[in-house]
Structures are given as structure tokens and as C-alpha cells.
């Protein structure tokens, strides 16, 4: 399977220890419902959607999500997170065909 592009954005860019920051996880994913038809071949596109997303920060799970097919193509998941020292934020998703994707970002509080 082709590599999927994903991105973790943190706002604001510079943050201090103990600050609450906004974390967005974006991923390029078709999110097919299993009901749409291909316009050229007139065949039903099989369902392929993300069904679980996990945010793990320094080995501790912050948030997990159960997802169904009603989310948009190339979904975005935005939550808040409390910065608690240096470390790594790892976001993992699995989809209904068994595809697993992982993306990580270093957390570096300043000041």
C-alpha cells in the first residue's frame, strides 16, 4: 500500500512547559463509505475508512477515537493537549482494511 501522507500541527509554534496547546492531526485518506460508485466503471467502491485514532504522549494515552465512515475525505482531528515536559507525541490510526499508520512529532517546550 502506498505511503499515506499525514501531518501533525501544533499551535502556537512556540510554547512553554505546562501550556495548553492545540494539536491537529491531518491525514490524506479516501474515507470511502462503501456506497459510492466509480463514475467511469460504474462499480461500487469498497468501503475504506479510518476506524480508530490514538494520541499517545510520552507513552501515556491522551485521547482515543472510534471513527465511522461519515467523516470527510482527508479528515482532520483537532484536540487540546497539556504540555508536560520534553517528549514525543505519537498519533496512530488503523482503518477497516487493517492498514496501520503512525506519525510522531517531538515536543520541545521553551522557557
Amino acid at each position: 500500500m502506498a505511503e499515506r501522507k499525514s501531518l501533525i500541527k501544533i499551535k502556537p509554534k512556540r510554547y512553554k512547559d505546562g501550556e495548553i496547546v492545540k494539536v491537529s492531526f491531518m491525514v490524506m485518506h479516501p474515507m470511502d463509505t462503501g456506497m459510492g460508485k466509480d463514475k467511469k466503471t460504474k462499480k461500487i467502491i469498497p468501503a475504506k475508512y479510518i476506524n480508530s485514532v490514538k494520541f499517545v504522549y510520552n507513552g501515556k494515552e491522551i485521547t482515543h477515537m472510534n471513527v465511522w465512515e461519515s467523516l470527510s475525505v482527508n479528515p482532520v482531528f483537532t484536540i487540546y493537549m497539556k504540555v508536560n515536559g520534553k517528549g514525543k507525541l505519537v498519533v496512530t490510526y488503523t482503518d477497516n482494511t487493517g492498514e496501520v499508520h503512525e506519525k510522531s512529532k517531538k515536543i520541545k517546550p521553551r522557557g
Partner: peptide, 8 residues
Amino acid sequence: VFLTPANG
């Protein structure tokens, strides 16, 4: 979405 106190 299942949140925890670590979200703030």
C-alpha cells in the same frame, strides 16, 4: 472521542 484530564 474519549478524552482524559491530560487534554487540559
